[in-house]
């Protein structure tokens, strides 16, 4: 566990040095502005959507970006010849991404409560942010294994956003609510992410909540196992 802590501190230090924390805070400012210019009464309803984008797409990108930097600088090879194991490495990376999401969550919640009468179950939301962020960080790592460089990763994320995130947003905003789409959404990981976030803001059917909890937990574990199994091959090849 000591080594996970060392790796985690290293991850956090590098997110600052590589400007990732700055970019993440800039995104948070954008969310604050979005909340600021929305109607006071709608902030609580919008809050899950804001967190949804940050905990899914930002976590996805954050995990991927750090891995891309490490690959480009051949640092992963150096990790491979230390006494740390892959589990420790991936766990530290996942925790660093979760930390970033929790900081954003903290800032947005503080702002919402102080200035926009936000009324949510904070602990429930925090738990949702942690598990969703960790799960999507694993997806980001997996996507990076198949991305040649940062641009390729970014393109991958855009494709992911169009195929998975956009339909969830359309359903959430009631823009498109056809039965076939809401049914199909059960295989979409982002739908389950938003269900978990919604559950701390307004009631969702208990059956849906249970399915979403199980889905996100299984996604976290399966994603972690996949990231673990493909890690050595990715490092030895020096990228995708």
């Amino acid at each position: 566990m000591d080594r996970v802590l060392i790796l985690y501190k290293g991850e956090m230090n590098r997110t600052v040095k590589y400007g990732i924390t700055g970019a993440s805070l800039a995104a948070t400012v954008l969310w604050v502005l979005a909340l600021q210019f929305s109607q006071a009464g709608s902030v609580t309803a919008l809050f899950p959507l804001v967190l949804y984008i940050d905990t899914t797409l930002m976590s996805f990108l954050l995990a991927g970006v750090t891995l891309v930097f490490e690959t480009q600088e051949n640092v992963l090879q150096s990790f491979l010849v230390t006494p740390i194991n892959t589990t420790e490495f991936l766990l530290a990376k996942g925790l660093a991404v979760v930390t970033s999401s929790v900081i954003t969550f903290g800032l947005l919640t503080t702002y919402g409560i102080l200035f926009k009468n936000l009324s949510v179950n904070i602990l429930g939301l925090l738990a949702a942010v942690i598990v969703i962020s960790f799960a999507f960080a694993q997806l980001g790592i997996l996507m990076t294994y198949f991305s040649k460089d940062f641009t390729d990763l970014l393109m991958g994320m855009f494709k992911f956003a169009i195929v998975f995130s956009l339909p969830t947003m359309l359903v959430f905003l009631n823009v498109f609510n056809a039965r076939w789409l809401t049914t199909l959404q059960y295989i979409n990981p982002t739908k389950h992410a938003i269900t978990l976030l919604q559950a701390s803001v307004f009631p969702v059917p208990q059956q849906d909540l249970i399915i979403s909890i199980v889905y996100i937990l299984v996604l976290s574990i399966a994603g972690f196992v996949g990231a673990y199994k493909l890690f050595d091959g990715y490092v030895v090849k020096g990228g995708a």
Partner: peptide, 24 residues
Amino acid sequence: FEMPVHFSKLTALENIEFFKRLYP
């Protein structure tokens, strides 16, 4: 390694101190 294997945005000492902590 034949190629440089360090974090470019960290100082030399930060790089070395980081990896040093991973060894007994």
